Computed example of a mutant assay.
Amino acid sequence: MASLPDFKVSLKELIAAPSISSTQSSWDQGNKAIIDLLAGWFSSLDFEVFIHQVPNTRNKFNMLAKLGHGEGGLLLAGHSDTVPFDENRWCSDPLKLTESSDRFFGLGTCDMKGFFAFILQLAKQLNAKHMKKPLYVLATADEETTMAGARFFAEQQLIKPDVAVIGEPTNLVPVVMHKGHMSHRISVKGQSGHSSQPHKGVNAIEIMVQVINQLQSLKTTLTQNYHNPAFDVPEPTLNFGAIKGGDNANRICGHCDLDIDMRSLPGIKDEELIQWLADALAPLAQQYPDRISFEELHPSSPSFKQEPQSALVEFAQHASGHTCCAVNYATEAPYIQQLGCETIVMGPGSIDQAHQPNEFLSFSQVSATHTLLLELVNRFCMTLK
């Protein structure tokens, strides 16, 4: 094992392999370099390694590694991509691992390349001959944008683990619920003209004002009718994220777009949200025929819920010393759950550092994470239950 890097060096090499995922083609990068890096490490530890290109992506790949034989077992999963960065807001090079104030700094240290560095150190301690059930390691593509890698992996149904842990940064608190996410663009088509003759045009902004009023009513209805106290924002949310329209003060606005996102509670289906949105706009669509439309901006991510009365949740709470919780952001958990396994989100680092300049992983998380991962493997791969 001497040829394999230690934790610090492996984290350094992962950070140095850029794998930005973005809807803007100027930022978007392939992830083959980091997938090949991981594949090489796990292959040298006698894992069976499988690499699959993700359809309809810009040169993106998933990696699945397997150690041991038999059915069930444990899946440790994470995404290989990061968000874009503004180098001017960083105090160090985002693609170079830096140590300061008892912290590792670098893009992906907690979200979430660091998780793979932990898994590598864990894997060095394992012997397949002593394993009763397999350990799987999954590295996905494009979690930060479309979640295409996790969607594709769920479609493939290559494995059927008993349990899965997704190592997003939760400060090692087991997460058993999160909201879903979808984003749409509502467009209003008006008729441009000179502002001195408003009766000869149709002002798209004026119609959009009415659209916003309808959506405000929908927001109120969601708040009044749906509530889950497990979340610190207990109701579904509808956010007005961006609006643009018109081109000059003395022209009637001929077109206006409003971008919104909606975050659903577990138990609310995407189809229901879409129907509520359509119902809210229906009166205006009748009043202004063929002028109002909406379209999905990005593929939606469903909400997630793992029943707390499960072997995985009970063990994770005991081993981590933390009570399970719910979070407002979305993860790959609902797709991994489609494999038929008990699923939680639990990993080192804080979500407060994710997507931020000077992202870091505290030294204090290192020993606790190593211990927790080893206990998970001992429980779900080394013994028969």
Rank of each mutant, 00 (worst) to 15 (best):
Q306L: 04
S101C: 00
Q224K: 15
R151Q: 14
F360S: 04
L384W: 05
R89I: 00
C341A: 14
I351F: 00
L107D: 13
E143K: 09
I274K: 15
S3V: 05
L14I: 03
D6F: 09
T23E: 13
N358E: 13
A282D: 07
V313C: 12
F104C: 01
I35F: 12
C256S: 07
T220H: 15
K200I: 11
C110M: 11
L215V: 03
W90G: 01
A77R: 08
L95Y: 14
S364K: 01
S301F: 02
E271V: 02
L14V: 04
L374D: 12
Q286F: 01
T109Y: 12
F116M: 11
V49D: 10
E342R: 02
D86R: 04
I207K: 03
T82C: 09
F105P: 01
N59W: 01
K132R: 05
Q306K: 02
N248E: 15
F153K: 03
T220N: 15
S44T: 07
I207G: 03
G193W: 02
G254N: 12
L215Y: 02
P299R: 10
D261A: 10
Q224M: 13
L281D: 00
L126H: 05
I34R: 07
M131I: 02
A39S: 14
T343N: 09
S303T: 04
W41D: 10
A128Y: 01
E271M: 09
Q356M: 12
A330Y: 05
L277Y: 14
L64D: 08
E359P: 14
P308K: 12
D270M: 15
N56C: 08
S362D: 10
E359R: 02
F118T: 12
S44Q: 15
L45G: 01
N228G: 06
S80W: 00
F47Y: 11
E314N: 12
A39H: 10
L273I: 11
N171C: 10
A285T: 13
E48W: 01
L97Q: 03
A164Q: 07
V173T: 14
T343H: 07
N62H: 04
A368I: 13
K133S: 01
L4H: 11
G167I: 12
S22W: 03
M112W: 10
C324D: 10
